[in-house]
Simulated assay, not measured.
Amino acid sequence: MRLPNVLAITLVGTGLAACGSTMDRLSQVGQTPKLSAIENPTAQAGYKPVQMPMPSVQPMAYSPNSLWQSGSRTFFKDQRARNIGDILTVKVEISDKAAFDNSTERTRKSSDSTGVGGAVGTAIDKIVLPAGMSSSDLASTDGASSYKGTGTIDRSESLSTNVAAVVTQLLPNGNLVIEGRQEVRVNYEIRELVVAGVVRPEDIASDNTIESTKIAEARISYGGRGQISDVQQPRSGQQVLDILLPF
């Protein structure tokens, strides 16, 4: 399929999708953004159970007249999350700063010349080549290329908040898979916070909280949707052109 046809089909599909989105937005003029319904995270489209390397299962052993259970991590039970469905609080603390400055410059120049001299060249001049041309300079090429690129990154991010998460899986080695979502609506803007990952029960504090830095395979997302976020985003047609246009 030729590129113009692909571009036309893409634009038509984008236009239809944008039309449906526009109608939805028009029906919500003057209304606050709707909050998402509370749903089971494991029932969401695209959800995949976590699979990680596990140690060998150790058999349980009980000692007569002993209160201690072999393999147990604690002597007294508490209210910290340890089973599927339990809730714990994640303390999200992110302070990130990065600065990079890169510069690249490249220059190349080449020149080639090909000719024939002597008796062979004289014969070629008289028999083969038209008047005014010489075999001493049959072909010549010149080429030059230049490239210069610069890039600068100066980024600073800071986030401090808390979010409650639910234990969605209990791994064979006792680690917990957690996932938490939080939505806050302020006027016509919704702020969304998503936290997911794997935690050790030992890292959960006595007040049933855990720091985000102790979450393995952490996935933390903080963003928003609403009128302000919509204005800050380029239109759908512009996004399509940015992807398809080669220049």
Rank of each mutant, 00 (worst) to 15 (best):
E217G: 08
A99F: 12
I38Y: 12
A81Y: 15
R108I: 13
K34V: 07
R106I: 06
T107H: 11
L129C: 09
I124E: 07
V199T: 07
L129P: 14
E39K: 11
D230V: 06
R225K: 13
W68S: 05
R191D: 03
L170C: 11
S221V: 14
R219V: 06
Q58C: 05
S206M: 08
V199D: 00
T104C: 04
V231C: 07
L176P: 03
T32V: 11
F76Y: 14
A218F: 10
A144Q: 10
M52K: 06
G226D: 05
V177K: 04
G46A: 00
S236H: 15
R181E: 02
R185C: 05
R106L: 06
K126C: 03
V163F: 14
S206L: 09
G226H: 12
V57G: 09
T161M: 09
N102F: 12
I87K: 13
L3K: 12
L35T: 11
G132E: 00
D112L: 04
G121Y: 07
L244I: 13
V166H: 11
T152M: 11
V120C: 02
Y147E: 03
D242Y: 15
D142M: 04
G71H: 04
L7R: 04
T141F: 14
Y62A: 00
Y147M: 06
R235F: 13
G149Y: 12
A164M: 10
R219K: 12
N162S: 09
V177Y: 11
L244D: 06
A144H: 14
G197K: 05
S72I: 03
C19L: 12
N173A: 03
S156D: 12
P55I: 05
I38L: 04
G121V: 08
T14C: 10
L245E: 10
N40H: 11
S140T: 04
E105I: 04
G117L: 15
L241K: 07
I87M: 07
Q239L: 07
V12N: 04
A139T: 14
A98W: 15
A123P: 15
D125L: 00
V231M: 11
G118I: 01
F100K: 03
L176V: 02
T10R: 03
M54D: 09
I220G: 02
R219Y: 14
P130G: 01
G121H: 13
L88D: 02
K126S: 10
